[in-house]
Write a protein that binds this DNA or RNA. Structure first.
Length: 198
DNA sequence: AAGTATACCAACCGCGAGCGC
DNA sequence: GGCGCTCGCGGTTGGTATACT
């Protein structure tokens, strides 16, 4: 059976750090054709890279409005709260932090926050309540279902909520200031309504 | 100054989901 | 319904920079 196309050809493809020239070529092709069909983007750019690698480079470095470094206290707090709520769903967490990438947040978590959390293990929601990781996963899966039901117009639970769902099936917070934590506390209240916490 | 340990970040890998044929 | 292709995600690895002894 032929190898899956999503795998990079280890022998033929360029690997390792990207050069400025490669970045430029990639950005040019994406400007013309858009950030999709990554394999053909790689081919059109004349890059000896797999599509996957091109996508990663674009998403994490070349995209417009990317913020680099200096994660603020507010952002850090938000990451901690969202991680408590969503678990290791980095792309979702990154979606709430404008200009930040999932990879950056994941790295930041692994290198800074996971240690910090272990040290001062302070529950955010109450002085005693702490959510097991398995519960988080179940809840998130449930949230997916609730989101679907909401899209289908069959959800009663969220009917009166101020929150709406975006096209990706998740909460659309587009009207909320991502760094204002007020919306988060309301979100946690909603969470309690849905799942009976604490 | 040299060697070692640690921190940080970019990139890779494997897997699963979605989609079209 | 099955198959292959593409994409996106999360975990992991490897290289480089910095701190420490």
């Amino acid at each position: 059976m032929a190898p899956r196309s999503s795998k990079c050809n280890k022998k033929e493809a360029n690997r390792g750090a990207w050069t400025a020239e490669e970045d430029q070529k990639l950005a040019q092709v994406i400007e013309i054709h858009g950030p999709k069909r990554w394999r053909s983007v790689a081919a059109k750019a004349g890059l000896n890279r797999c599509g996957k690698s091109c996508r990663l480079r674009w998403m994490n470095h070349l995209r417009p409005n990317i913020k680099r470094g200096n994660i603020s206290d507010q952002e850090e707090d938000l990451i901690v709260r969202l991680h408590k709520l969503l678990g290791n769903r980095w792309s979702l967490i990154a979606g709430r932090l404008p200009g930040r990438t999932d990879n950056e947040i994941k790295n930041y978590w692994n290198s800074h926050l996971s240690k910090k959390i272990k040290q001062n293990e302070k529950p955010v929601r109450s002085s005693t309540w702490q959510e097991p990781a398995s519960t988080v996963k179940t809840k998130v899966l449930d949230m997916d279902n609730v989101a679907k039901r909401s899209e289908e117009g069959t959800s009663k639970t969220l009917e009166d909520s101020k929150f709406s769902f975006g096209g990706d099936g998740f909460f659309d917070f587009s009207n909320e200031d991502p760094l204002n934590l007020e919306w988060m506390s309301e979100f946690l209240e909603l969470d309690e309504t849905l799942y009976g916490f604490p």
